[in-house]
Amino acid sequence: MNTFDNQPTSHFAAPWKLKGEGFILVYRFTKNFVYESGFLREDQLGNFKEGFGYVMLVNYEESPVGPYRELLFIPGKFGPENKQSITKIYVDSDASTENGRFNWGIPKETVPFIWNKESNVTTVGVGSEENPIWFSKIRTGSIPLPVSTKILPIHLLQHLNDQKYLTKPEGKGWGKLAKLEKVHIDPLGFPDISQLKPLMCVHVNPFWMSFPLPKLV
């Protein structure tokens, strides 16, 4: 039994199957940016190994805890394990936060979200309307392409409450190239990528994802 975070009153054990839509922004973050703005744990300082980094905005339409939205930051890989880590993540569901922390050691925090779509432009707000952590407008293009974790694999090593969790989520779906047209970020709440240009932005809709049982290491 996992005793490293309080078991949720409504516990939904791994594996999880999820379905929804989302935006994947792909970057190559510098060490300076990650160390200064990446919300790293103390043990991650000095251990950043670069690689592809991601910002993801996700609208889960189906999950074991019901629909919810999510914003997350993955800087890249860290040594010596050479695995990725989610260093900042928000959702708008307490059940998702509690189960995510308990099942996989993902440091979720619960805040309000706004997710509106008009034609091919999606507006996402995270946090309070008066002082949002994140506010963006993303325009979806028309060129379809398959998206899969086989192309951009994710191997997560999360460290929470003195326990390490190794998880390899798998996902697939259909995406279209997109463009981040406007973004405002509170750097006290999320890494400020507003002055950085992503290598790629993809709107994946729909996608299917599986979060398996983690390996405790």
Rank of each mutant, 00 (worst) to 15 (best):
L25N: 03
D92G: 04
V58W: 00
Y68W: 10
Y68F: 10
I24V: 10
F12M: 08
G38Q: 05
Y54S: 12
F48E: 01
G22H: 05
F73W: 11
I86H: 07
P64A: 12
V26G: 00
W16C: 01
F39I: 05
D92R: 04
R69P: 10
A13F: 11
E50L: 15
P67L: 02
N32L: 04
P67N: 03
Q84F: 11
G38D: 01
G51F: 15
N59A: 09
F52H: 14
E62C: 13
A13M: 09
Y35P: 14
E36M: 15
V91Y: 03
R41S: 12
E61R: 07
Y35W: 12
G20R: 04
R28F: 05
E81A: 03
K31W: 11
Y60T: 07
F73R: 01
G51I: 12
F23R: 01
K49D: 14
V65N: 06
I86W: 07
I74T: 04
F78L: 00
G66T: 07
E70Q: 15
P75G: 07
L72I: 12
S63C: 08
K77D: 11
A13V: 09
K17W: 04
K83Y: 13
P80Y: 15
N82A: 10
K19Q: 09
R41M: 12
V58E: 04
E42N: 14
E81S: 08
T30G: 12
I89E: 13
Y60F: 15
G46H: 08
I89Y: 12
E61W: 05
R69K: 11
M56G: 03
N59C: 10
F48M: 08
P15F: 03
G79P: 14
Q84C: 15
L45C: 09
R69Q: 15
G66S: 07
V65M: 10
I24G: 03
P75L: 05
N47D: 10
V55L: 09
S85A: 11
P67K: 01
I24A: 06
E42W: 14
S85Y: 11
Y35T: 13
K83S: 12
G38P: 01
E70F: 12
G20S: 10
L18D: 05
E36F: 12
G38H: 03
I74Y: 01
G66W: 06
Y35S: 15
L71S: 01
Y68S: 05
M56T: 05
E36W: 14
L40S: 08
F12P: 01
E81H: 03
N59R: 05
P67R: 01
N59Y: 09
V55W: 02
L40E: 03
E62R: 09
V26S: 00
I74M: 11
P67S: 06
F29I: 07
I24H: 04
I24E: 03
V34N: 02
P80D: 14
